[in-house]
């Protein structure tokens, strides 16, 4: 049996708005191997972000089992899910989601703050990560002073700092031009080659082509 980092067993997610039920994901089963690079494609509203939220433990499935590293986590409480996010998962968002009033280095170090690590080692590790993404000379800047591509590099550094088991990216190149997008994908690809499991949502088939596996989703169901 393969070394599965994540297994989804018959996962469904139904949003309720008053009396109306919106089934965003329908009976999804899926396994993600450690070290793989998966691209998720699908039209708008097909359930991609919903799936990423479930993978990232930001939300819990309505039905089904979520197994991470062999342990079922679908019914854990808020604190335990936060702990998993803190230790195992890195997020990259389309709109970067940096905290505007913190400097680059503070943004990068933020995940470690919630692990209770002392300030000095946070700063050290954050500046190492800044170097990895090529922003060593911008660490004292605020996000607003950086270009989109640079901001996304900060977000990648932030996602990497806690040595996560996997990184979830929702349209990481969506706000970037083709060239910058390609640079970002090269960076992510390099990280994947060094062993990080990657799960990337995209509209762009060029971006999807970086993945080992491309999953297509339509109306909450995997079609391919």
């Amino acid at each position: 049996m393969a070394d599965n980092l994540i297994e989804f067993e018959n996962i469904s997610k139904i949003y309720k708005i008053g009396e109306i039920k919106i089934p965003a994901l329908k009976n999804i089963s899926l396994a993600i191997e450690r070290g793989s690079h998966i691209s998720l494609m699908g039209p708008s509203g097909s359930g991609k972000t919903t799936m990423l939220n479930l993978l990232g433990c930001l939300d819990t499935p309505t039905t089904g089992k979520y197994i991470m590293e062999g342990k079922e986590i679908s019914s854990l409480g808020d604190d335990s899910l936060s702990e998993i996010r803190s230790r195992k998962i890195g997020f990259i968002f389309q709109s970067y989601n940096l905290i505007p009033h913190l400097t680059v280095i503070e943004n990068i170090g933020l995940p470690l703050f919630y692990q209770g690590i002392n300030e000095k080692s946070i700063a050290e590790r954050a500046s190492v990560m800044a170097e990895v993404v090529g922003l060593k000379d911008r660490v004292r800047h605020k996000p607003a002073e950086l270009s989109g591509g640079q901001q996304q590099r900060v977000a990648i550094a932030r996602a990497l700092i806690n040595n996560p088991a996997f990184i979830l990216a929702d349209e990481p190149t969506g706000n970037l031009d083709t060239k910058t997008g390609r640079e970002i994908m090269e960076l992510l690809n390099k990280l994947n080659e060094e062993g990080t499991t990657l799960f990337v949502i995209t509209h762009d088939s060029k971006v999807a082509d970086y993945g080992d596996i491309v999953i297509r989703i339509l109306d909450g169901q995997i079609v391919e």
């Binding site: 936060s82 230790r87 933020l110």
Partner: peptide, 16 residues
């Protein structure tokens, strides 16, 4: 609000 969402995604617990 958005900052709170980001912090939560990065592993902040409710008590944090």
């Amino acid at each position: 609000t958005r900052e709170i969402g980001i912090r939560r995604a990065l592993g902040a617990k409710r008590k944090d």
